[in-house]
Design a protein around this nucleic acid. Structure first.
Lengths: 173, 173
DNA sequence: CCCGAATCGTACGGACCGTACCATGCGGAA
DNA sequence: TTCCGCATGGTACGGTCCGTACGATTCGGG
């Protein structure tokens, strides 16, 4: 299949960028890297990483090899066309809107007891905040990744603030 | 179809709660209400509101009537079973994790120029923040809705802070 | 050497999504 | 009044996505 007929979504570019950073790489490794990076602001079900890789390979944006022994896993690299597409996308700063599905805010909106929901949410968000802070402190990572992570930290901090106030029955302000 | 065979997602409950608040109500009206409320933290494509309403009616959680004249629109009310299901769900404060798809953070992560992305993001988030603040000040609304809106305001404020710092080349902190 | 667990990958059906398109009502112009 | 154009309201439908469930391979310990 030629590049011309290939539909590229933001998810496609996410995969291309991950491959760029990790090549040569198997889908399973991508899955793990995504787990501690983009999945926090760009959620994808794990199976889609496999299908997206093979789509992109078929379209010529990734190069696909097979390991010669063992599991004969597929191994991907960015192709010239892939790099070009990725660069073009990166050069354009315009984006679509974000989409959020936050069941905590939903329950709050729907009339659940604020303090009770807050209690549960606080626990989750505190965990996440600690997780992000740990990564931020201890991991080596490229600057762009560090910036995105800082975004996540900011959000979790805000979540914790919000739900804390709610738990105590104060106005969230 | 009996209730027993009906799969209820968070989206189902979102619709039930909106109906509870607006009944009697047509799907189109729900669409408009959602537009200025839950869509900011629980995104749903508009067509799904129609299909979800008829699913819930078929399952006995909503009552469906037709207008007698004009467009003969479908008009929904919460049934007894619907109210019960909704109450049960609300009483349980546990929830799943939130999911986010933020193309701004994604581009940042993928190596785009931070200042350029920030410029574009700032514009969007400033608009949203103003929108939410306007609603918060001027609209009458139930307390639970006000709380959820306050959550949205907090997040937009954080977004603005984050992208502002990035635009100026400072560390996001 | 075998077995169980962990890892890695895929198959598949149903839910979701978004585009494109109909249908109806409404209001203004002549 | 009638016509027309636009705004509103609703649906049809096919492709994409999603998540569960399972199959395959490897590894480690007894």
């Amino acid at each position: 299949m030629g590049v011309s007929t290939l539909r590229l979504t933001d998810t496609s570019y996410a995969v291309l960028a991950l491959v760029e950073r990790c090549e040569p790489v198997t889908p399973d490794q991508l899955k793990q890297v995504a787990q501690v990076s983009i999945l926090h602001f760009w959620s994808i079900p794990h199976t889609q990483i496999y299908t997206e890789c093979s789509r992109l390979a078929e379209g010529g944006l990734l190069e696909e090899r097979r390991e010669q022994s063992g599991r004969r896993r597929r191994v991907y690299r960015l192709s010239g066309a892939g790099r070009k597409a990725l660069d073009r996308w990166r050069a354009d700063p315009s984006t679509g809107l974000y989409e959020l599905r936050d069941p905590g805010l939903l329950k709050l909106f729907c009339g659940a007891d604020p303090a009770a929901v807050a209690e549960a949410q606080l626990e989750r968000h505190r965990e996440r905040l600690e997780l992000y802070r740990g990564l931020y402190e201890h991991e080596e990572m490229p600057q762009s990744m560090r910036l995105a992570l800082a975004g996540g930290i900011g959000h979790e901090r805000e979540y914790v603030r919000f739900w804390s106030r709610l738990r105590e029955g104060r106005d969230p302000d």
